[in-house]
Amino acid sequence: MRAGGAGREVLVTLVVAALLIWLMPLVIGTYTLTVLVIYGMLGLSLGLIWGFGGILCFGQAAFFGLGAYTYAIAAINIGESTVPMILAVLVPALFAALLGAMMFYGRLTDVYLGVITLVVTLILFKFVNSTAGPQYKIGEARLGGFNGIPGFQTLNVPGDPDAYIWGDPYFYVCAVMLVIVFLLVTWLLRSSFGRIAVGIRENEVRMALMGYDVAARKTVLFAIGAAIAGLAGALFANWGEIVTPNLFSLGQSAEIIIWCIVGGLGTRLGPIVGAAGLAYLKFLLGQQSMIDNTLITGLILVLFVLFLPRGLVPAIAALLTSIFGRSRRKPSARRMRRLRHG
């Protein structure tokens, strides 16, 4: 990966992203598109820690929900959106750093990691669900239990609380955020931190013997993933204009994992494509009532695990490679097996 290659990749990313941002609203309404972009960011957050760090988190929705709730609570108390946005990134990151430190310094791996993240999500869900009474308040904001929190200040131009950003402009804000996050992730993975993270995914003992502090690095990566999920949560809160405990639900966590599997693990683009694609499919399926929505989501997951375990993006890349015969860098089959099966 030469420096020139990096510059060209950034340029290609920017051009493609600009084209997509310009063309997509002609096909799909911006209201729907905004949420697809947000889900893409959420998918990317798990894709980063699972695909490149080998951390299978069953509770990515916890950070998503935490970001959304942080934003909503802070926005009600502050009445302006800039600080809440920053808090919505920091709080989940901090939470994940604490949780991650607890898990990774305890040398927990695969299934046990999955159970703990799942349990933490459940705790948050149960707790927030039970806060319907008026005694549960943070500052001015009532937590509202299963009713959620409506009516908070939505995104505004920084410094001017009356200049709301909504509708088409909000879509462009979200899309640009996604591009920025994507580029940051690209930069992170090219840096030595990213390569060491991949090294840890490949073989933890080897990296530890080489003198790297595996637990600390995994914790940091986990926190970065949570920060991205938190940002996605805050954007989602702005889009929906209400936050509910369902953001923390198991179903939400499951969906993020499905996006990553379908899109392709170990790629940056895969989880975004998987998230946006599946969310749009769900939207389309929601408009008919002949076949149950859940059934199709489940069927897709089963079929992908059985027949296309590497996901769409790697499969398409392999197909293109075999057609055009160019040897592009791609994750080897062996590496992917390692990643998924420890």
């Binding site: 299978l56 499951a254 076949i291 929505n293 489940g298």
Partner: peptide, 20 residues
């Protein structure tokens, strides 16, 4: 022998059963 894959596949199955 593929722990994570079976978890994902059975998660998919659970959704299928809910749908059915």
């Amino acid at each position: 022998g593929r722990l994570v894959d079976t978890m994902l596949a059975t998660w998919g199955l659970s959704l299928v059963f809910i749908g059915l």
